[in-house]
Computed example of a mutant assay.
Amino acid sequence: MTTETISGTASATGRPRRRRWITTLIWILVTPPAAWAALRTAGWDAGFRWIQLVAFTPYVAGASVAVALLALTLRRWAAGVAGLVVVGVFAGAVLPRAFADAPAPPGGTPLRVLAANLARGEADTKAVMNLVVRLKPDILALQELTPEAAERLEAAGIRKALPHMIGEPTPGVWGSGIYARSPLRADQAALSYGNFRQSLAVVPELNLEIASVHPCAPRFDYKAACWAQGLRALPKAGAGPYRILAGDFNATLDHAIMRELLATGYRDAADATGQGLTPTWPQQGWEPVPGVTLDHVFADSRIAVRSFGAHRVPGTDHRAVFAELALPGTAR
Protein backbone atom coordinates (compact mmCIF):
# COMPACT_ATOMS: atom_id res chain seq x y z
CA MET A 1 0.00 0.00 0.00
CA THR A 2 2.79 2.40 0.92
CA THR A 3 4.78 1.55 -2.19
CA GLU A 4 1.83 2.16 -4.46
CA THR A 5 1.16 5.54 -2.81
CA ILE A 6 4.76 6.69 -3.20
CA SER A 7 4.85 5.53 -6.81
CA GLY A 8 1.59 7.29 -7.63
CA THR A 9 2.76 10.49 -6.00
CA ALA A 10 6.04 10.46 -7.96
CA SER A 11 4.18 9.85 -11.20
CA ALA A 12 1.73 12.66 -10.47
CA THR A 13 4.60 15.02 -9.64
CA GLY A 14 6.46 14.10 -12.85
CA ARG A 15 3.52 14.87 -15.13
CA PRO A 16 3.15 18.57 -14.13
CA ARG A 17 6.92 19.00 -14.37
CA ARG A 18 6.91 17.52 -17.87
CA ARG A 19 3.97 19.72 -18.87
CA ARG A 20 5.81 22.82 -17.65
CA TRP A 21 8.87 21.91 -19.69
CA ILE A 22 6.78 21.41 -22.82
CA THR A 23 5.02 24.73 -22.24
CA THR A 24 8.35 26.49 -21.74
CA LEU A 25 9.74 24.92 -24.91
CA ILE A 26 6.71 26.03 -26.93
CA TRP A 27 7.10 29.62 -25.73
CA ILE A 28 10.80 29.48 -26.60
CA LEU A 29 9.77 28.51 -30.14
CA VAL A 30 7.07 31.18 -30.42
CA THR A 31 9.18 34.09 -29.16
CA PRO A 32 11.78 34.45 -31.99
CA PRO A 33 9.24 34.69 -34.86
CA ALA A 34 7.14 37.03 -32.71
CA ALA A 35 10.13 39.31 -32.17
CA TRP A 36 11.00 39.06 -35.88
CA ALA A 37 7.46 40.03 -36.89
CA ALA A 38 7.52 42.97 -34.46
CA LEU A 39 10.83 44.31 -35.77
CA ARG A 40 9.77 43.89 -39.38
CA THR A 41 6.44 45.63 -38.74
CA ALA A 42 8.14 48.47 -36.86
CA GLY A 43 10.40 49.08 -39.87
CA TRP A 44 13.66 48.70 -37.98
CA ASP A 45 16.46 48.61 -40.56
CA ALA A 46 19.34 49.09 -38.12
CA GLY A 47 22.42 46.90 -37.78
CA PHE A 48 23.89 45.10 -40.75
CA ARG A 49 23.07 41.67 -39.31
CA TRP A 50 19.38 42.49 -39.16
CA ILE A 51 19.56 44.05 -42.64
CA GLN A 52 20.88 40.70 -43.84
CA LEU A 53 18.46 38.56 -41.83
CA VAL A 54 15.22 40.38 -42.64
CA ALA A 55 15.62 39.36 -46.30
CA PHE A 56 14.73 35.82 -45.18
CA THR A 57 11.38 36.86 -43.67
CA PRO A 58 9.30 34.58 -45.98
CA TYR A 59 11.10 31.54 -44.56
CA VAL A 60 10.51 32.66 -40.97
CA ALA A 61 6.85 33.23 -41.91
CA GLY A 62 6.63 29.62 -43.03
CA ALA A 63 8.29 28.40 -39.83
CA SER A 64 5.85 30.44 -37.73
CA VAL A 65 2.96 28.39 -39.15
CA ALA A 66 4.60 25.17 -37.99
CA VAL A 67 5.21 26.62 -34.51
CA ALA A 68 1.59 27.76 -34.13
CA LEU A 69 0.27 24.36 -35.25
CA LEU A 70 2.59 22.58 -32.82
CA ALA A 71 1.40 24.74 -29.93
CA LEU A 72 -2.26 24.10 -30.77
CA THR A 73 -1.67 20.38 -31.26
CA LEU A 74 -0.13 20.17 -27.78
CA ARG A 75 -3.02 22.24 -26.38
CA ARG A 76 -0.85 25.13 -25.26
CA TRP A 77 -3.68 27.52 -26.02
CA ALA A 78 -2.07 30.80 -24.97
CA ALA A 79 1.07 30.07 -26.97
CA GLY A 80 -1.07 28.82 -29.85
CA VAL A 81 -3.09 32.03 -29.98
CA ALA A 82 0.09 34.09 -29.82
CA GLY A 83 1.49 31.97 -32.62
CA LEU A 84 -1.62 32.56 -34.74
CA VAL A 85 -1.28 36.32 -34.25
CA VAL A 86 2.32 36.10 -35.47
CA VAL A 87 1.20 34.03 -38.47
CA GLY A 88 -1.40 36.69 -39.26
CA VAL A 89 1.19 39.48 -39.15
CA PHE A 90 3.50 37.55 -41.48
CA ALA A 91 0.62 36.64 -43.79
CA GLY A 92 -0.32 40.28 -44.19
CA ALA A 93 3.28 41.17 -45.01
CA VAL A 94 4.27 38.26 -47.26
CA LEU A 95 1.25 36.59 -48.89
CA PRO A 96 0.15 39.55 -51.10
CA ARG A 97 3.33 39.05 -53.14
CA ALA A 98 2.02 35.68 -54.28
CA PHE A 99 -1.19 37.15 -55.74
CA ALA A 100 -1.40 39.31 -58.85
CA ASP A 101 -3.01 42.73 -58.83
CA ALA A 102 -6.01 43.39 -61.04
CA PRO A 103 -5.04 43.17 -64.72
CA ALA A 104 -3.83 46.45 -66.19
CA PRO A 105 -6.11 48.02 -68.80
CA PRO A 106 -5.12 47.42 -72.43
CA GLY A 107 -3.34 49.98 -74.55
CA GLY A 108 -0.36 52.18 -73.93
CA THR A 109 3.16 52.17 -75.29
CA PRO A 110 4.85 48.79 -74.67
CA LEU A 111 8.17 48.93 -72.87
CA ARG A 112 10.31 45.89 -72.06
CA VAL A 113 12.96 46.20 -69.36
CA LEU A 114 15.73 43.67 -68.61
CA ALA A 115 18.19 43.99 -65.73
CA ALA A 116 21.16 41.80 -64.80
CA ASN A 117 24.02 41.79 -62.30
CA LEU A 118 27.09 40.59 -64.21
CA ALA A 119 29.11 39.49 -61.14
CA ARG A 120 32.29 41.52 -61.67
CA GLY A 121 31.73 41.25 -65.40
CA GLU A 122 32.05 37.45 -65.35
CA ALA A 123 28.50 36.61 -66.45
CA ASP A 124 28.22 34.61 -69.67
CA THR A 125 28.07 37.18 -72.48
CA LYS A 126 26.39 34.72 -74.85
CA ALA A 127 23.63 34.05 -72.30
CA VAL A 128 23.04 37.79 -71.84
CA MET A 129 22.85 38.28 -75.59
CA ASN A 130 20.49 35.31 -75.94
CA LEU A 131 18.14 37.01 -73.47
CA VAL A 132 18.39 40.27 -75.43
CA VAL A 133 17.53 38.47 -78.67
CA ARG A 134 14.73 36.38 -77.17
CA LEU A 135 13.08 38.96 -74.89
CA LYS A 136 13.72 41.99 -77.12
CA PRO A 137 14.10 44.53 -74.28
CA ASP A 138 13.85 48.21 -75.04
CA ILE A 139 16.09 48.92 -72.06
CA LEU A 140 18.87 46.82 -70.53
CA ALA A 141 20.17 47.85 -67.09
CA LEU A 142 23.45 46.19 -66.09
CA GLN A 143 25.23 46.12 -62.74
CA GLU A 144 28.85 45.18 -62.03
CA LEU A 145 29.61 46.13 -65.62
CA THR A 146 33.37 46.07 -66.16
CA PRO A 147 35.27 47.48 -69.15
CA GLU A 148 36.06 43.92 -70.25
CA ALA A 149 32.38 42.89 -70.05
CA ALA A 150 31.37 45.99 -72.01
CA GLU A 151 33.91 45.11 -74.70
CA ARG A 152 32.60 41.54 -74.94
CA LEU A 153 29.03 42.81 -75.26
CA GLU A 154 30.10 45.23 -77.99
CA ALA A 155 31.84 42.42 -79.85
CA ALA A 156 28.75 40.23 -79.46
CA GLY A 157 26.58 42.88 -81.14
CA ILE A 158 24.77 44.57 -78.25
CA ARG A 159 24.68 47.85 -80.17
CA LYS A 160 22.74 46.26 -83.03
CA ALA A 161 19.84 45.55 -80.69
CA LEU A 162 20.35 48.45 -78.26
CA PRO A 163 22.43 51.12 -79.99
CA HIS A 164 22.42 53.75 -77.25
CA MET A 165 24.36 53.52 -74.00
CA ILE A 166 25.05 55.55 -70.88
CA GLY A 167 27.13 54.23 -68.02
CA GLU A 168 30.42 53.83 -66.26
CA PRO A 169 32.01 50.42 -66.79
CA THR A 170 34.40 50.01 -63.87
CA PRO A 171 36.69 47.18 -62.73
CA GLY A 172 35.25 45.16 -59.85
CA VAL A 173 31.68 45.39 -58.58
CA TRP A 174 31.19 49.16 -58.86
CA GLY A 175 30.27 49.80 -62.50
CA SER A 176 26.88 49.95 -64.18
CA GLY A 177 25.34 50.84 -67.50
CA ILE A 178 22.09 51.35 -69.40
CA TYR A 179 21.57 50.27 -73.02
CA ALA A 180 18.46 51.31 -74.96
CA ARG A 181 16.78 51.23 -78.37
CA SER A 182 15.96 54.93 -78.15
CA PRO A 183 18.44 57.79 -77.64
CA LEU A 184 19.52 58.40 -74.05
CA ARG A 185 20.55 61.53 -72.22
CA ALA A 186 22.45 61.78 -68.96
CA ASP A 187 20.82 64.61 -67.02
CA GLN A 188 23.04 64.10 -63.99
CA ALA A 189 26.03 62.10 -62.89
CA ALA A 190 25.61 58.54 -61.68
CA LEU A 191 24.65 58.15 -58.04
CA SER A 192 27.85 57.17 -56.25
CA TYR A 193 28.07 55.89 -52.68
CA GLY A 194 30.89 53.70 -51.43
CA ASN A 195 32.25 53.62 -55.01
CA PHE A 196 29.06 51.94 -56.27
CA ARG A 197 27.85 53.80 -59.36
CA GLN A 198 24.14 53.66 -60.14
CA SER A 199 23.72 54.92 -63.69
CA LEU A 200 20.87 57.33 -64.45
CA ALA A 201 19.52 58.09 -67.90
CA VAL A 202 16.60 59.85 -69.54
CA VAL A 203 14.81 58.58 -72.64
CA PRO A 204 13.53 61.93 -74.05
CA GLU A 205 11.39 60.22 -76.68
CA LEU A 206 9.38 58.50 -73.93
CA ASN A 207 9.62 61.16 -71.18
CA LEU A 208 11.19 58.39 -69.09
CA GLU A 209 13.91 58.35 -66.45
CA ILE A 210 15.59 55.05 -65.59
CA ALA A 211 18.17 54.02 -63.01
CA SER A 212 20.41 50.97 -63.02
CA VAL A 213 20.14 50.18 -59.32
CA HIS A 214 23.05 48.77 -57.31
CA PRO A 215 23.62 50.15 -53.81
CA CYS A 216 26.40 48.79 -51.61
CA ALA A 217 25.93 45.20 -50.52
CA PRO A 218 25.48 45.18 -46.71
CA ARG A 219 28.02 42.39 -46.20
CA PHE A 220 29.89 44.21 -43.43
CA ASP A 221 28.99 46.65 -40.68
CA TYR A 222 30.67 49.62 -42.34
CA LYS A 223 28.64 49.04 -45.54
CA ALA A 224 25.24 49.45 -43.87
CA ALA A 225 25.23 53.26 -44.11
CA CYS A 226 26.37 53.17 -47.73
CA TRP A 227 23.59 50.66 -48.52
CA ALA A 228 20.96 52.93 -47.02
CA GLN A 229 22.37 56.05 -48.70
CA GLY A 230 22.39 54.36 -52.10
CA LEU A 231 18.73 53.35 -51.81
CA ARG A 232 17.57 56.70 -50.40
CA ALA A 233 19.32 58.54 -53.23
CA LEU A 234 17.21 56.81 -55.89
CA PRO A 235 14.68 59.07 -57.64
CA LYS A 236 11.27 59.10 -56.00
CA ALA A 237 8.14 58.44 -58.01
CA GLY A 238 5.57 61.15 -58.53
CA ALA A 239 5.29 64.18 -60.76
CA GLY A 240 7.66 64.69 -63.67
CA PRO A 241 8.90 62.05 -66.10
CA TYR A 242 7.87 58.42 -65.84
CA ARG A 243 10.40 56.58 -63.70
CA ILE A 244 11.73 53.03 -63.62
CA LEU A 245 14.28 51.59 -61.20
CA ALA A 246 15.76 48.28 -62.31
CA GLY A 247 18.58 46.10 -61.05
CA ASP A 248 20.16 44.58 -57.96
CA PHE A 249 18.72 46.49 -54.98
CA ASN A 250 20.52 44.26 -52.45
CA ALA A 251 17.21 44.42 -50.59
CA THR A 252 13.80 42.77 -50.49
CA LEU A 253 10.32 44.11 -49.85
CA ASP A 254 10.81 43.19 -46.19
CA HIS A 255 13.29 46.04 -45.77
CA ALA A 256 11.54 49.16 -44.50
CA ILE A 257 13.63 51.37 -46.78
CA MET A 258 12.21 49.53 -49.80
CA ARG A 259 8.65 49.95 -48.59
CA GLU A 260 9.33 53.66 -48.11
CA LEU A 261 10.53 53.87 -51.72
CA LEU A 262 7.44 52.03 -52.97
CA ALA A 263 5.26 54.40 -50.97
CA THR A 264 6.44 57.34 -53.08
CA GLY A 265 4.45 55.84 -55.96
CA TYR A 266 6.29 52.81 -57.33
CA ARG A 267 5.04 49.28 -57.96
CA ASP A 268 7.28 46.24 -57.89
CA ALA A 269 6.69 44.34 -61.15
CA ALA A 270 7.14 40.92 -59.52
CA ASP A 271 4.76 41.78 -56.69
CA ALA A 272 2.17 43.23 -59.10
CA THR A 273 2.12 40.01 -61.14
CA GLY A 274 2.00 37.61 -58.19
CA GLN A 275 5.66 36.60 -58.47
CA GLY A 276 7.00 38.66 -55.61
CA LEU A 277 8.43 35.59 -53.85
CA THR A 278 10.49 34.49 -56.84
CA PRO A 279 14.11 34.25 -55.60
CA THR A 280 16.75 36.04 -57.67
CA TRP A 281 19.81 35.48 -55.44
CA PRO A 282 21.78 33.34 -55.04
CA GLN A 283 21.61 31.14 -58.08
CA GLN A 284 22.06 27.50 -57.23
CA GLY A 285 25.54 26.65 -56.03
CA TRP A 286 26.77 30.18 -55.35
CA GLU A 287 25.97 30.61 -51.65
CA PRO A 288 24.83 28.09 -49.01
CA VAL A 289 21.68 30.09 -48.17
CA PRO A 290 18.03 29.97 -49.31
CA GLY A 291 17.10 32.16 -52.24
CA VAL A 292 15.76 35.67 -51.69
CA THR A 293 14.41 38.40 -53.95
CA LEU A 294 17.10 41.08 -54.29
CA ASP A 295 16.58 42.04 -57.94
CA HIS A 296 13.59 44.14 -58.92
CA VAL A 297 11.93 46.29 -61.53
CA PHE A 298 10.13 49.22 -59.90
CA ALA A 299 7.79 51.17 -62.19
CA ASP A 300 5.94 54.26 -61.08
CA SER A 301 2.20 53.84 -60.67
CA ARG A 302 1.42 55.59 -63.95
CA ILE A 303 3.05 52.69 -65.80
CA ALA A 304 1.08 49.47 -66.36
CA VAL A 305 2.76 46.18 -65.44
CA ARG A 306 1.99 43.34 -67.87
CA SER A 307 4.35 40.53 -66.88
CA PHE A 308 7.50 39.63 -64.99
CA GLY A 309 10.09 36.86 -65.19
CA ALA A 310 13.44 35.86 -63.68
CA HIS A 311 16.04 34.19 -65.91
CA ARG A 312 19.18 32.23 -65.15
CA VAL A 313 22.48 33.61 -66.47
CA PRO A 314 25.57 31.39 -66.05
CA GLY A 315 28.57 33.03 -64.46
CA THR A 316 26.68 35.26 -62.03
CA ASP A 317 25.05 34.71 -58.65
CA HIS A 318 21.98 36.76 -59.63
CA ARG A 319 19.12 35.88 -61.94
CA ALA A 320 18.26 38.49 -64.54
CA VAL A 321 14.83 40.10 -64.15
CA PHE A 322 12.54 41.09 -67.00
CA ALA A 323 9.33 43.10 -66.99
CA GLU A 324 6.85 43.95 -69.72
CA LEU A 325 5.40 47.37 -69.02
CA ALA A 326 3.22 49.90 -70.82
CA LEU A 327 3.59 53.67 -70.68
CA PRO A 328 0.48 55.82 -71.02
CA GLY A 329 -0.16 56.91 -74.59
CA THR A 330 -0.50 55.44 -78.05
CA ALA A 331 1.29 52.16 -78.79
CA ARG A 332 4.29 52.45 -81.06
Rank of each mutant, 00 (worst) to 15 (best):
D124F: 10
Y242P: 08
L118F: 04
A68F: 02
L262C: 07
L261P: 04
F99T: 10
A61N: 05
A331K: 07
R259V: 03
T170E: 09
A161S: 13
A263Y: 01
L200K: 01
E151I: 07
W27C: 03
P58W: 05
L114T: 14
R312N: 08
P106Q: 03
A161D: 03
K126I: 06
L72Y: 12
F220A: 05
T5R: 06
Y222A: 15
S176L: 04
L145E: 08
L245K: 02
V128Y: 00
R319Y: 12
E287F: 14
P282A: 06
D138N: 03
A224F: 08
T23A: 11
A102L: 14
P241T: 04
P183M: 06
A34K: 01
N207S: 09
Q284V: 13
A38D: 07
V67F: 14
S11A: 13
R15Q: 12
S11R: 15
A104M: 09
A102K: 10
P147C: 06
E148T: 10
V173P: 04
A149N: 14
T73C: 03
Q188Y: 02
R332Q: 01
A38F: 06
R181K: 13
P328V: 00
F90H: 06
G177P: 08
W21S: 14
T316E: 14
Y266F: 14
G43R: 06
M258E: 09
H164S: 07
I244V: 15
P103R: 08
A141F: 11
G167N: 02
P218V: 04
D248A: 07
L262V: 06
A310H: 01
T41F: 01
A155W: 14
L234I: 08
R232M: 00
R185W: 02
